[in-house]
Design a protein around this nucleic acid. Sequence first.
RNA 1: GCCGGGAUAGGGUAGUGGCUAUCCUGAGGGACUGUGGAUCCCUCGAGCUGGGUUCGAAUCCCGGUCCCGGCCCCA
Length: 457
Amino acid sequence: MTIIKRPRGTRDFLPEEMRKRSQARKAMQEVLERWGYQEVATPTFEHLELFTEKSGASVIDEIYSFQDKGGRDLALRPELTAPVMRMFVSELQNSPKPLRLYYFGNCFRYERPQKGRFREFWQLGAELIGGARPDSEAEAIALADQLIRSAGIRGDIHLGYLGLIRAILERIEGDKRAAAMRMIDKKERSALEELLEDLNQGDLGLLELIDLKGKAALDKALEIAGDLLLTETQEAPARSEGPRAPSEPKMQSEGRGSARNGRAVSSQLHLEEFQETVDLLGAYGVDFQIDFEIVRGLDYYSGTVFEIYAEGLGAQRQICGGGTYELSSLFGGKETSSTGFGLGFDRIMEIAHIKEERKPPVFLVYTPGVKVDAARIAVSLRRSVPTVLDVMGRSMGAQLKAASGAGARHAVIVGREELDSGKLILRDMSGGEQENLTLEEIVERLSPIYSSKFYKT
RNA sequence: GCCGGGAUAGGGUAGUGGCUAUCCUGAGGGACUGUGGAUCCCUCGAGCUGGGUUCGAAUCCCGGUCCCGGCCCCA
């Protein structure tokens, strides 16, 4: 007989690993709650349309989609931002703003598995819905930073700003903008140079801008912004074309983003907003790098975008990505700006430093004749102390052996004599010392030890 | 989708065309019928899968599956 194996790209989590995952998740949830975020959950599957609407038809190739028995086109969720925004639009639109939501859930993508990439993976993310831009951005980024730290990871935070890039790209032909964005994102330097050369406009400072990192980049950005505003006023009457023009035949050569044809994307500069985000982040004490190469190729992003990278993950170094976006209106809601991010939980687990916290239960060891009484005692013990009872029909010696093997700190031993005297034996498994105590005394003794998060020794 | 490496008891491994497939660990039991971690004994348990070559394949060849690393992609 052949053993049935796990489907490709999926994993089993054995107790030891699951313990770490739970700890990491709890640590991060604690941070989120401390920042006032509330957990939400959405279905594991959604209408396929939800994801094609957001990301374009090309994502179908990488989605686990299927038809149910009623002929509906459904998809296992490949990400959680769209479901959360769908939920927001249909159920939370009239809630007081801002909404601070977070989620943790498994997602599915039909992709080639490799280090840090699986077909079923877990994402933890937060969405700050309806807040003003710089404030929200600073909060979201600072929060992401805290989350990663709570898992014991050091990440490099890279901040980009789409307002400026889009303003520059507005200078070039519409059908080349998407391509240019893509080249910046993919770091296809020579292709980008070529494209800019063909335009005969000079490079508009773009190349220098994306090369510069940190403070220098911001200075350069201010310089470019100044130039742009200057020419803007001079040329304004001549330029009626803009990204908002719905008639513009915007080619979607990549196949992605086709659902967003003609969608309004703020291309206004607002560099001062970015400046404010940066200043606020300083106040939050967050270390980051300004990096205009971060553009997160999607049209619904605006304002600040950011990505966080970590070492030790091979080719998949990115552990977090996010930014300010407008998806509410795409899903039929009122235009609502949101800032959010998603963390790749599995990647974080690969490099997280989690302190081992193992709490084996107390073993209630009994002689064969008193099984029924032992079961009754176990019930009382479990009210305050994790307790296990032999179910193998083992001898007392073998039960102790099992307790020892399981790493138990204490055993409670009960036989005929103990029942008659009303005093059970509490055995310290590390030294072997024993005491005769009533059940109440044992509970009193053990519960403070086992109810705390860590063993007190 | 592409390139490369791999697959032997639950975990880790040896072997290399040839009788009952090696060792460690593990699991279950026992020596120790009311006291564990040591030792000893017994037991359980394996060559991914489908073809081919061969007298004979875990070993050689081909396909598939899965794993690992990289590319592409990454909402």
